[in-house]
Amino acid sequence: MFRFILTRFSLIIPTFIGVTLLTFALIRLVPGDPVELMAGERGISPERHAELRAAMGLDKPLMVQYGTYIADVVRGDLGQSVVTRTPVLDEFLTLFPATIELSVCAILFAMIIGLPLGIIAAVKRGSVFDHSLMGISLTGYSMPIFWWALLLILLFSVNLGWTPVSGRISVMYWVEPVTGFLLIDSLLSDEAGAFSSALSHLILPAIVLGTVPLAVIARMTRSSMLEVLGEDYIRTARAKGLAPFRVIAQHALRNALIPVVTVIGLQVGVLFAGAILTETIFAWPGIGKWLIESVSRRDYPVLQGGVLLVAAVIMLVNLLVDLTYGILNPRIRHGGH
């Protein structure tokens, strides 16, 4: 197991270097140069221009620039926002809990609903339930996320008035940030009603963000389960006289989960991509909204650092998923044959 972790971890390093190259190139490929963009419509004098370029290190050869960039990244220095003048890392760390909170709730929603639905569809293969579930999940998978979000807002927030339209919590409440996760912080604070306010703000964005993963998980669980249910060892389990529930929930599910966990891991990338749209629509103060704003403000350090950090998080989650794999699948934990 230790060797497995080590090999898997060492694979992260080249991937990370690749990501730094990409984010580095991203900035350099933008037409015009950052200084001109920062200067805006009025423009600045050539002397000031050169001075700023030198200050930002843009006058040095590309290799040297990349070297400095990497050295900074390794030290944890991702530069500072051109707009707010605060370090990129600090902004990221402040906003990140909001995105985690949203993403975790979205993936939990997707798993809690998707896994049982997929299992039932597989067990009742060919039934009306199976066919309708697969049809609905295909719709969910192919639906534009912003359109779905607007539909839900229209129904639940505007027409029924059940949930707020946007934000993380009602302005009536002020909650001391302890963990950064509002659901937890609001429970810790003594503001009555803060928790239910935070929760009602979270429900719609979490459903919107969890829809695509839900569809993917349900479909994957179904097909993986179908495959496993046809295996010889399922027949063996039934030949022992085990109850059908035990055969499905223990013998089949344990095996069927292995590919499903991989897919859930891959959904993390989808979640971040979806978070950009979801957070923008629901005015959710997280990483997605932050990145979109950095694009429109042409805040290149934020964009560069933000993309790098998001990529790092995705890599980390995938590493965790691979480790879970080792727990689920003894063939990996104990090496091959």
Binding site: D232, R235, P330
Partner: peptide, 25 residues
């Protein structure tokens, strides 16, 4: 029926390598 199956009537299958569940000891 399940009380009989696996207790009074038991079965050994053709493919031993795939008849054991790979996830359990």
């Amino acid at each position: 029926r399940r009380k009989l199956t696996g207790k009074d009537v038991a079965m050994v299958f053709q493919e031993p390598m795939t008849s054991l569940n790979p996830c359990f000891t």
